[in-house]
């Protein structure tokens, strides 16, 4: 079982490190992992991997969203992107929704800087993981854009009827 750290009642991030931001080279491993899963299990297998991550690994985040609603969602994403090297993201919230305006995606930025071949469906992971995290908290996410910048909106589930159109999420390229 994943257990949140001892300081989780104060830290918006359930898993805390001693350094303020992550190491950008880990984006290389994330991209490589997606490519490996895609090669082994196909696109449905990759989407299942993302969904399992959202449901299981990120369960402590979902618990906070369930308890705190949109303010907890906004608090999480502000802390999350503050810890990602090179991210330029603004987070805005209303009573029923939280919007992430991702001006510079740190992962795509670093993968490009390193000249890596990016898995074309890379940006879909934000939808499948985000939706798996949000659904148990009675929320849902919709994403537009990708390939380095996008807009992600987390809303109350009842307020959104149309499913995510995956065509609205761009393929990622070097």
């Amino acid at each position: 079982m994943n257990q949140p750290n001892a300081s989780s009642s104060r830290d918006p991030l359930p898993y805390a490190d001693t350094k303020p931001v992550g190491a950008a080279d880990f984006y290389l491993a994330i991209n490589a992992t997606f490519r490996f899963v895609l090669g082994k299990f196909g696109i449905e297998g990759l989407r299942q991997y993302w969904t399992d991550l959202g449901v299981k690994y990120f369960a402590p985040v979902t618990a906070r969203w369930s308890a705190g609603g949109p303010p907890a969602v906004a608090e999480y994403w502000r802390a999350f992107f503050a810890a990602e090297p090179g991210a330029e993201v603004s987070v805005s919230e209303s009573k029923d929704a939280v919007t992430l305006d991702v001006k510079v995606c740190p992962a795509i930025k670093h993968l490009r800087a390193q000249g890596r071949e990016i898995v074309p469906c890379f940006c879909q992971h934000c939808y499948f993981i985000g939706e798996a995290m949000a659904a148990p908290a009675d929320m849902t996410v919709r994403i537009e854009g990708g390939n380095g910048s996008c807009r992600q909106t987390f809303s109350r589930r009842a307020a959104v009827t149309a499913p995510q159109d995956l065509a609205q999420i761009k393929e990622a390229r070097c």
Binding site: N2, L13, Y15, D17, V21, G22, A23, A24, D25, F26, Y27, A29, I30, T33, K40, F41, Y49, D52, L53, K56, Y57, F80, A83, E84, P85, C105, P106, A107, H125, C126, I129, G130
Partner: peptide, 22 residues
């Protein structure tokens, strides 16, 4: 989004995801 800050957490989780399947 999967982040770099807690990378080691989801990296380790991924090992078990693979072990359970293959």
């Amino acid at each position: 989004m999967l982040g770099s800050y807690d990378f080691c957490g989801h990296y380790e989780w991924t090992f078990e995801w693979f072990r359970a399947r293959g």
